[in-house]
């Protein structure tokens, strides 16, 4: 019933729906692999600096519907700026899994040759970037949109960040500027209810960031239910508007942080913790497509198998890649020869 309603609204073809599921499964498979690798060698006791994947690790499990629904509308030439929690968006934007895994493992084969790490993924071939400073990606997305506009292309820029980031100054400055100059930007807020340990209600004075859009002169919509097809529909409209010169839009998606803020977060502050796994959007969507007769168990298993093959290849490749040479620690501060 719900499926039919959505279908009526979104008009998605079967392949598109299977594509959304496939994308979400790929992302989840990747995040599960990183989760496994991250914790594999941090014992006894948890030491954040230890192991093949050290440092803070912010995984995106539960937020796949945002990435899949949005990126289905983005071309290679469109830009995307993300946050400290970037893997889902990087993968959905089309990042090469080996280059992504290589960076997470801090290897020469990584996108930044191990200089950046998982919060600092820069892939110019797909116009993807992210940053560990909350709300830092909004202004850069404006600039990319500005460049596209000046170049006379119809490329767009999407800027994705959490509901916590929507209380930071750069978000508000960017909304105004994007609307003022009619820049082809899609602002996407991932409301996962939490900014680390601070509940959304304790940080945000309005019930929905979508209402803030009006204050800056752009359309705003809130997508409930972590529903990938609803995200797909909202993003489709916003991207089309931006491409057609209609200026920026804001989409807030009520999504889910399935795991901790970062790995090692015991989440004692989170009262709803026990019920969180039941809200996992992937089994729900899989069930939905199965019930609609679009997907058999064997089809789903094939999707999972394919994802596993790709992800394990990326992880194995990363592990087999050379670590950076300490003698080159000062490299890349400036352009060579400048």
């Amino acid at each position: 019933m719900r499926m039919e309603t959505t279908e009526a609204v979104t008009g998605l073809r079967t392949e598109q729906r299977l594509g959304l599921l496939r994308q979400m499964i790929l992302i989840r498979t990747f995040e599960e692999a990183i989760l496994r690798e991250y914790h594999a060698d941090k014992s006894p006791g948890f030491d954040i600096g230890k192991g093949l994947v050290p440092g803070e690790m912010h995984l995106s499990a539960g937020q796949e519907p945002v990435a899949a629904g949005l990126c289905a509308h983005l071309e290679t030439g469109d830009a995307l700026t993300a946050t400290h929690r970037p893997h889902h968006l990087a993968i959905a934007k089309g990042m090469d899994l080996r280059s992504l895994a290589g960076e997470i493992f801090g290897r020469e084969s990584g996108l930044g040759h191990g200089r950046g790490g998982h919060m600092h993924l820069f892939d110019p071939s797909i116009h993807f970037s992210c940053s560990g400073i909350v709300a830092e990606g909004f202004p850069a997305a404006l600039g990319q949109a500005f460049a596209f506009q000046r170049a006379g292309t119809n490329s767009v820029a999407a800027a994705v960040a959490g509901e916590g980031a929507a209380n930071a100054g750069p978000f508000h400055e960017s909304l105004n500027l994007a609307a003022l100059w009619k820049l082809p930007v899609i602002f996407v807020i991932e409301d996962n209810d939490w900014g680390i340990s601070v509940a959304r209600d304790a940080s945000t004075a309005v019930p929905s960031n979508a209402v803030r859009a009006a204050g800056y002169g752009m359309p705003g919509i809130r997508v409930e239910g972590n529903d990938v097809e609803a995200v797909h529909a909202a993003a489709g409209e916003a991207v089309a508007r931006a491409r057609a010169g209609g200026g920026p839009s804001l989409i807030e998606v009520h999504t889910l942080r399935l795991w901790g803020h970062f790995e090692g977060d015991a989440q004692g502050y989170r009262p709803e913790l026990a019920g969180v796994p039941d809200k996992d959007p992937i089994p729900a969507y899989r069930q939905q497509l199965g019930d609609a007769g679009l997907l058999s168990d064997a089809d789903a298993a094939a999707m999972e198998g394919e994802a596993r093959t790709r992800v394990e290849d990326a992880v194995e490749h990363a592990k087999a890649s050379p670590t950076p040479n300490p003698a080159e620690a000062l490299k890349y501060v400036f352009v060579e020869g400048e």
Binding site: R115, P326, E328
Partner: peptide
């Protein structure tokens, strides 16, 4: 720390 941003990879970070 020589005048370089702090690198992520352990080998590089501990070099600076």
């Amino acid at each position: 720390v020589p005048d370089v941003p702090i690198p992520y990879a352990r080998e590089l970070e501990y070099a600076v």
